[in-house]
Design a protein around this nucleic acid. Structure first.
Lengths: 144, 144
DNA sequence: ATCAGTGCAAAACATTTGCAGCATG
DNA sequence: CATGCTGCAAATGTTTTGCACTGAT
């Protein structure tokens, strides 16, 4: 079952209707692999031939985040980014950000996840999710 | 050499003057162990008997961050937090945030740092810093 | 005395909210 | 055909910027 299918199914079962904004935002997130900003979502939607209101995008993203179907990520840019969350932590990844040009690259590492799981168990919290952010200069910026 | 001394020395050597706002913000960050918001800094300053303009606080924080003396952290609250950075990564730590009440707890783990250092070497970036954010419910909120 | 640093007020953004009309179930 | 969803516009909150004045060197 694809992320889109699982998402539509989850929302339907929770009693939500399948409105235009929800369909459009889900469609955009399904195609975008890594984290995108709200204006980027609106632009991508327009490129697909659909217009969505900013407010609706924020509302859909809040809903998806609350249901664990998407997650909000802040990389220090002063605005949030969102990306889909796959079941079984498939394609789970973290982010590498270039402090010079803003370039964002995803990465993943199983040993890091193992260390995180252990730390999460040791805290007094019931940890639901985690983010790792690496900041530095990308190869292009270092060469320049 | 304390963080305050190192900070004042670094700024002086870089040709910056020792103005009121800089002295006040440095003094507040020196006393706060963990990440604080800009209004929290202004309030803490007032409690110490000093008034600072919001804009100046932002400007000082930008400068300290650029010089690697402080770091900006976003925990998904819609506003940034700042904390001092000690030399040799002393007191280096990460953050655990309760998604119910907003409580923030610092934690540190040497094995996690080791895993991070290894991952950082494998990227094509020259990684300068990293943040780890754990989200979940704190014991109080889970009990309630 | 010079000019960097500061504070205020205004501007620029990001995000949230109120509400009237539309469209889903 | 009821009411949940959407879009607009206004409100809110955070961060940035312009500018005249102050104070450090």
């Amino acid at each position: 079952m694809s992320w889109t299918e699982r998402t539509e199914e989850t929302l339907r079962q929770a009693g939500y209707r399948r409105g235009a904004a929800r369909r459009i935002v889900v469609s955009v997130l399904a195609r975008e692999g890594c984290c995108v900003t709200v204006p980027e979502i609106v632009d991508a939607a327009r490129r697909q031939g659909h217009d969505v209101g900013l407010a609706s995008v924020y509302r859909v993203l809040d809903l998806l985040t609350e249901k664990g179907l998407a997650q909000k990520i802040e990389l220090g840019e002063g605005r949030a980014r969102y990306e889909r969350v796959e079941p079984q932590h498939e394609r789970h990844h973290h982010h590498l950000v270039c402090t010079d040009c803003g370039r964002i690259e995803p990465f993943s590492d199983e040993e890091l996840e193992t260390a995180l799981r252990r730390v999460e168990e040791e805290t007094g919290f019931a940890v639901a999710s985690h983010d790792v952010l690496l900041r530095g200069s990308c190869d292009d910026c270092r060469a320049a």
